[in-house]
Simulated scan of single mutants.
Amino acid sequence: MKNYLLSVYQPDGPTPGPEVLGPIMTTVAALKEEMRAAEAWVFDGGLFPPDTATVVRVTDGDVGMTDGPYVEGKEHLGGFTIVRAADLDAALEWGRKLAAATTLPIEVRPFQ
């Protein structure tokens, strides 16, 4: 079994209100329980908005830090789930389910 990162990309802007987010989070919680029951769930977490990020970069031996995300975009990494799956097809199935639950794009990537 390999571990796969399911990255959740969300649009920049304000968080949707509880009338939108509530039902989504209920569906995500049910999917998480399904993952646990299948012994696929390893770890997950949500992230604060990109403006809370600090980028640490080494240039010519000097370490510098800047506030905010390292790239400008219309989407940002909002959270992630790590699953254990037999192969890429199984991980993609979890990715499909997570995309349906969150209504957001999911990137599926294997760990080395």
Score class of each variant (00 low, 15 high):
residue 1 M to A: 14
residue 2 K to Y: 09
residue 4 Y to P: 07
residue 7 S to F: 10
residue 8 V to S: 15
residue 9 Y to R: 04
residue 11 P to I: 00
residue 12 D to M: 15
residue 13 G to A: 13
residue 15 T to W: 13
residue 15 T to G: 11
residue 17 G to P: 00
residue 18 P to E: 09
residue 19 E to F: 06
residue 19 E to M: 03
residue 19 E to G: 08
residue 19 E to Y: 08
residue 20 V to M: 06
residue 20 V to Q: 07
residue 23 P to N: 15
residue 23 P to T: 09
residue 26 T to F: 03
residue 28 V to I: 15
residue 29 A to P: 08
residue 29 A to T: 07
residue 34 E to D: 13
residue 37 A to H: 02
residue 39 E to Y: 02
residue 40 A to P: 05
residue 40 A to Y: 01
residue 43 F to K: 05
residue 43 F to D: 10
residue 45 G to Y: 03
residue 45 G to C: 02
residue 46 G to H: 02
residue 47 L to N: 01
residue 49 P to Y: 09
residue 49 P to V: 05
residue 49 P to N: 04
residue 51 D to H: 14
residue 51 D to C: 01
residue 54 T to W: 06
residue 58 V to M: 08
residue 61 G to H: 05
residue 62 D to Y: 03
residue 62 D to S: 12
residue 64 G to Q: 12
residue 64 G to W: 00
residue 68 G to A: 11
residue 68 G to E: 11
residue 69 P to N: 01
residue 70 Y to C: 07
residue 70 Y to D: 07
residue 73 G to I: 01
residue 75 E to K: 01
residue 81 T to M: 00
residue 85 A to L: 08
residue 85 A to Y: 03
residue 87 D to V: 05
residue 89 D to P: 06
residue 89 D to V: 06
residue 90 A to F: 08
residue 91 A to N: 15
residue 92 L to N: 13
residue 92 L to S: 01
residue 93 E to P: 04
residue 95 G to N: 09
residue 97 K to P: 06
residue 99 A to L: 08
residue 99 A to Q: 02
residue 100 A to G: 15
residue 101 A to P: 02
residue 101 A to D: 01
residue 102 T to Y: 07
residue 107 E to I: 00
residue 107 E to Y: 03
residue 108 V to G: 06
residue 110 P to E: 11
residue 112 Q to T: 02
